[in-house]
Amino acid sequence: MFDWIQYLADLLVFKVFGLEKGSYLAEALNFFIYDTVKILILLIIIILLMGIVNSYFPIERVKNYLSRKKLYGFEYLMASLFGTVTPFCSCSSVPLFIGFVSGGIPLGVTFAFLITSPLVNEVAIGLFAGLFGIKTTIIYVLSGVLLGTVSGMILQTFRLEKYLSPWVKDILANAQKDQEAFIQEKQPFKQRWPVIVNEALKIIKGILPYLLAGIAVGGLMHGYVPEGFFQKFMSKENWFAVPASTILAVPMYSNASGILPVVQVLVAKGVPLGTAIAFMMGVVGLSLPEAMLLKKVMTWKLIAIFFGTVTVCIIISGYLFNYIL
């Protein structure tokens, strides 16, 4: 499927730039061009697809559905699945949170949504597909959905309502099951499309510098770091690797697109995939800016419990993957 990109990269490096085959510079440049083109194509496709889904996604109706129906435990999975298709703009997470709470949706279900929404987003999926292939991407998405579901269920058992900010508690007390739906927007696809494309380009533009830097660093490491280098201290037998990389990952965020290409090289050089996935989930799923935003609706204690639970779940899934894969 991507043979033509390799052809293009070969053509550019060996014919246009006239670099010698097998030389270090040529191989690194070849790798850089190939990876960049492939990842950008996949990113654009996935961001556009998600943009279309999003444009039609009736978030209010979903909310009413979740609050109205008796789902016998499936509501966590549903909320988590909805989280995958909604975009993650961190500025929307607080309004969404309040919207769910005001609809009388249990806090645990809301958390399930809140965890999966940033974890499985279009940029992460696009990067995963470009760097690790489809199989790993599916594993990542499924485990992200599962992680949100399980973490939400666990958080629900803690009865955390008392740790919400006072004004959110008031909203909770006045929660109504079915809220008046908004005027349904009826817009033809022709009108939606330019907005979707615009949004996609904006996202790509925002992450491009990080992505290029990440691929460049990855390309350089690819040549320098010997095969199996990391196996020494990040092997599956080293139990400490998973928690360490997860905890290291939590404070990172905006540079996720720069980190993934590097992680891919680490995996190629012997870091177990489970450890890498745990690291990525920590980077994408939990972040400091998100914590700052959530502060408006939660007490620090609740944020700490929330982040703590998710971190533990990520670590467990990291071990699980190392064991299975």
Binding site: E60, C89, S92, P95, L96, I98, G99, S102, I171
Partner: peptide, 9 residues
Amino acid sequence: IMSYQVMTT
């Protein structure tokens, strides 16, 4: 903002 019941900004 929430008094307008919007969930997306």
